[in-house]
Design a protein around this nucleic acid. Structure first.
Lengths: 112, 112
DNA sequence: TATTTTATCTACATTTATGGATAAATAAGA
DNA sequence: TCTTATTTATCCATAAATGTAGATAAAATA
């Protein structure tokens, strides 16, 4: 089972890339994750995760054009590949199938 | 971020325990996971994961009664604690909030 | 006593997240 | 042009978390 799944953090990174579109590069991904999760995320973790996702074929990347406004190295822009989209779908599907099998009142809390 | 989240495998284990109710013990959890994920899961991974989830307070456990029909050590029956339910809820919520932020046509695939 | 079912333990390899240092690319100013 | 500041990626070493195999022990029935 090791390494065969999307990790949870990886899944969030993939989703963030989908959300950010043309602005999906390291720092922006970090910020998006921090906003949504309310936790501190290290930039190294984001880069490491993106590299791994690219190795796995779930992300693609290209370097952005230079802009007039800022200094700084070019942004490495990521996009979710088709296999990446399928991996997201698969993860969702597995959870949903378990979710659907939960007996009524399995939990005290209301899972709206 | 390390260790602050439910891992993906842990999340599936929690859900399986919710599904199985009174039958939520090692082997049954393994089977449930294998059925739903279509992958091989080692029994050690299940036990290790349950132990860790119990340490984190997301699962509780008690030993089942002896049954007439079989030999064998008593089953250790798990249940999802309230914090465990909240952790599941939180994981869902974070994904949903990213999901909702996806621009239309962010993905080629249809995420029904 | 033997057999079955299950948990527990131990050791380990792999994966993941992090911090910190460094390098590259760019713009702006002297 | 030269220098400096800025923005970003890359690299490295490491700590922590995760999943696994394999051995062992315990509890139960026959």
């Amino acid at each position: 089972m090791k390494g065969t799944y999307l990790g949870e953090f990886e899944e969030l990174v993939l989703l963030s890339v989908g959300v950010l579109q043309q602005e999906a590069y390291g720092l922006a991904i970090k910020k998006e994750l921090e906003d949504q999760t309310q936790r501190k995320v290290s930039i190294s973790a984001v880069h490491a995760s993106c590299n791994r996702l690219e190795e796995k074929g779930y992300l693609t990347s290209h370097f952005g054009e230079k802009t007039q406004k800022r200094g700084g190295r070019r942004k490495k822009i990521y996009a979710v590949s088709l296999p990446g989209q399928k991996a997201l779908q698969r993860a969702q599907h597995i959870r949903k199938s378990l979710w659907d099998r939960l007996p009524p009142n399995a939990f005290t809390l209301d899972f709206a």
